[in-house]
Amino acid sequence: MLKESLRKAYGEALVEQGSEHSEIVALEADLGKSTMSCLFQDAYPERYLQMGIAEQNMASTAAGLALVGKIPFIHSFAVFSTGRAYDQIRSSICIPNLNVNICGSSCGLSDHGDGKTHQSIDDIALMRALPHMTVLAPVDAVETRKMVKAMAEAKGPSYIRMSRADLPVLSDEGTPYQIGDTPVMRDGKDVLVIANGVMVSIALEAAVMAEKEGISVKVVNLSTIKPFPKNAVLEHAKGMKGIISAEEHNIYGGIGSACAEALSEEKVSLQIMGIEDIFGTSAAQYDELLQKYGLTAEKLFERIVKANKEK
């Protein structure tokens, strides 16, 4: 399957939006060659602010820029752009509901070599807890491009978490997109898997394995985490024997928690699959980490079999 870089798609989309919206400015905390904000720097040097390795100042500076009519996009690795600047995002940006867009690059375990200090397992939980914040996690490069456009056009703060890895292209360029969409990546009637990011392609693999056992699995891409598309999720869940959420994030506070909140009044079983409340570690290959933390098609398949026996 064709794989494409999400961060390159992000950088290119930001340049494109920069020509559409002259108010867009990009702020970078010295990781521009990783986040690919460097493409914006090449295209619009006068609208590119190199902030140095100072994420807190970057977040509050973005608030100031938004207050004089700019549309700032701020950049760092997911772990730093959220955690290192949490109170600045909370106080300077979210309380006044400012139009600041936060890019969290190299999310989850995807910065496999750098280890636990650089791997974000808690960014969704942090950003999801903030009133006004929109939280997005694209499945591939195509969806990334659509999201950057939507972020540039939407008001209020938003956060996008993106993998460092090239991921399979699963979305269709021509399909219209809006924040809150819950694309069905594969239809099925027995078990529902709600996933995002890298976990969607893993879920599709597991669904093929399940099909061989006669279990029909529906895979939904929950790329909008907040505002949580509750009605759509409830609709997808109708008639299912069981539901499984799958995420490259701590099981506490991520999309599993969001699903549990939404489904708490429904008579349906939910299994939450993710990183089991531990920090990451360094590895030579990204796949080794997905294996180590149980984020594999095989593990998900086991859960699907269990879910299929629920009713």
């Binding site: 807190q56 509050s60 608030a63 100031g64 207050l67 004089v68 106080s91 300077s92 006044p96």
Partner: peptide, 21 residues
Amino acid sequence: EAVTGSLGQGLSIGVGMAKGF
């Protein structure tokens, strides 16, 4: 003109405004 009071953030907001101008 902004939300401040969590100390240390207002000067950065001012930097953003001044740079925007």
